[in-house]
Nucleic acid binder design. Sequence first.
DNA 1: AATAAGATGCATATTAAATACTGATTATTT
DNA 2: AAATAATCAGTATTTAATATGCATCTTATT
Lengths: 148, 148
Amino acid sequence: MHLTLHTDYAMRLLMFLGLNPERRCTIEEIAQHYRVSRNHLMKVALTLTQTGFVDSLRGRNGGLKLGKPPAGIGIGAVVRATEDNLDLVECFDAKTNTCPVAPACLLKQPFAEAVHAFLAVLDRYTLADMLANPKILNSMRRLLDLRE
Amino acid sequence: MHLTLHTDYAMRLLMFLGLNPERRCTIEEIAQHYRVSRNHLMKVALTLTQTGFVDSLRGRNGGLKLGKPPAGIGIGAVVRATEDNLDLVECFDAKTNTCPVAPACLLKQPFAEAVHAFLAVLDRYTLADMLANPKILNSMRRLLDLRE
DNA sequence: AATAAGATGCATATTAAATACTGATTATTT
DNA sequence: AAATAATCAGTATTTAATATGCATCTTATT
């Protein structure tokens, strides 16, 4: 059980923007900072833009900034937006299910409840919580300096 | 985010054994019942045998039966045994992590907590709960009859 | 001895995810 | 107006994880 890199990158991107609130950051620079595929990050940025977590501006001097204040960006909401398949087991999706016992099976309930609990925990945290530690800002700055 | 078929099949296998407590069932017949790969199910059976959830006997008249009473088989424990990679994000595993911010990042904590909550819910259920609905027995019997 | 079952290891196929590529669109600067 | 720098969009390719298949070995019963 794991989340996709899509979600992982989404969180990193949001953290980067949260640590640089005074300006627009380009996808290019964020990708370089994390040493991550620029193309993939671009799709992540698109998802986040379409869901309103990020505000994008095209053209020269364009780039990304947060679409909401960090305290308004819930981790659970981001995961729900970026992780498109939260169906834990085959039988969660009637379309693809092949298990003949599914209609009478009692397994779905606890799994659904477990996913709910999982997201409920993430809903208690926001991007602001992720930025609370001053060490992270220093660490990111240092890494940026090293690279340049 | 999803569990592997390995876990899915493990639960189905345990339910089948739980519904047929009076005899040993062969992997072959369970695979046929769910219309599932016999080879894959065999590996699932091995995992469950090695972790004690299932008791296996080789040779003629051999087969599988539950290794413990249904009320002693927790869903959370089964998931932990069959799902080998519960590392939600890359940085959970220091060996494979590539994110340069990981040491200072605050993201790990909420995700770890969320997985914990997820498993805690499953720990509240046992195989006995899954077998509580008489409809499932009927449904399985009917499907078995149809097939033969 | 023959047979029927699980155990084991290796090989292959399938699928989802990640990445790369190409071109289009938009805005700014000169 | 032209050049440039950025995001947006769609498609194709690569890669890795998962699932499946196959061959052989071991064990127990008849």
